[in-house]
Nucleic acid binder design. Structure first.
Lengths: 203, 203
DNA sequence: AACATTGGACACCGCCGCTATCCAACCAGG
DNA sequence: CCTGGTTGGATAGCGGCGGTGTCCAATGTT
């Protein structure tokens, strides 16, 4: 199929498809002439993935490029792919390292083992610092409950990874890491709304 | 104190403080002359809150303005404030309403009661649609486990709301709704990393 | 031969979060 | 009372981002 059909089938404007090609989010089609290229079903799928990452996934083009690079890297082991995806995700800038101790303490209480330089660890520390700066330093009990809930989820996420094909596993890990975040946040808000209704408006 | 000290104490450039004043994120100080205004501790606190919402909270200036309006509205009941905060948060655009049925079914299985037009419900539906479009439609069991974990968290969030002062409760709800999101996401990633290490690299 | 479409390159746009400049009005020190 | 630095307020500009519009020669299609 040609670019116009690729665009039509995915609902993405042709100019935007060209933009994604330029940005390296979408591999170029097979050239059949100086002004013709052929695209296939894989491109349709990839384009849908790109749109999901950029839109609901909330990734920037640059971040999506890194994440997709992790997906494309051949022979990546699943654990490394997950690390690469985490590293590519919008983390904390190169600001001064906040107090990792508090974050590490939470992990230690749950017995979690993560890389020393895990971006998620830095992200947690930064988030805790932000809460502190806003005047609501979270208590250990709160953090522990959050960690317990997060633990169930992370456990399940990893358990669901398909064992067969390695590239498929990598793709699964990346997609689910990114696209289940909005699901989790929406569910949390819904749970809050339900609990708030029960507590505060006696429904 | 004057604007320069306010800026110094919070580490925010004076030009940026002026910008926040213009944008209505920060109430103006008490005018003591045509070119003088006095700021107090409340301004310091508010400015820190604004920075937390804009930075780690990930809110846009426009969204932060709405959220802060909910905080400032006098006499708002807690349940309504939470609703206002949720409504102000970056939700789903006015695109065509996706299939809310799948989302509603998840809530029904847990017995949650939320507003018919809850923005979080639309957000959940949109997130599910994105997963579907990306080729990974989530199973009911996955959703139920996510919902269970989210339920514990939402329950705790609401339980922690201080009962005494109403404005304080509203502020607490808004701050925690927004600023605990990055905490939860970071913890999920850390849990994934731990579980992945145990499953895939036999640590 | 006539016409539409394509890949590719480049310029441009609108939005956003600041940031820089300027000004008249001040206030503080000497 | 003068001098110099600071302030509130207004306005303009900037850099990054995610596209979009335009143009071109080469290529298909009829």
């Amino acid at each position: 199929m040609q670019i116009s059909e690729l665009a039509r089938r995915t609902g993405v404007p042709v100019a935007t498809v060209k933009y994604y090609l330029r940005e390296g989010l979408l591999p170029s089609g097979e050239l059949t002439g100086a002004t013709r290229a052929r695209y296939d079903e894989a491109h349709v799928e990839r384009l849908r993935l790109v749109r999901a990452l950029l839109g609901p996934g909330g990734l920037s083009v640059a971040t999506a490029r890194s994440v997709l690079a992790a997906v494309d890297a051949p022979g990546t082991a699943v654990h490394e792919a997950l690390g690469a995806a985490h590293r590519a995700l919008p983390g904390v800038g190169p600001g001064d390292p906040p107090d990792l101790d508090r974050a590490r303490a939470v992990l230690a209480r749950r017995g979690w083992r993560v890389a020393e330089d895990s971006p998620a660890l830095r992200a947690l520390a930064a988030a805790l610092a932000a809460l502190e700066a806003a005047g609501y330093p979270p208590g250990d009990d709160l953090l522990d409950r959050y960690a317990e809930a997060a633990g169930r989820i992370g456990e399940q996420d990893v358990a669901e990874v398909p064992a067969g094909s390695l590239p498929e596993a990598v793709r699964f890990v990346v997609v689910n890491t990114v696209l289940l975040e909005p699901v989790l946040l929406a569910l949390r808000r819904l749970a809050q709304e339900d609990a708030s209704g029960r507590r505060f408006s006696g429904g």
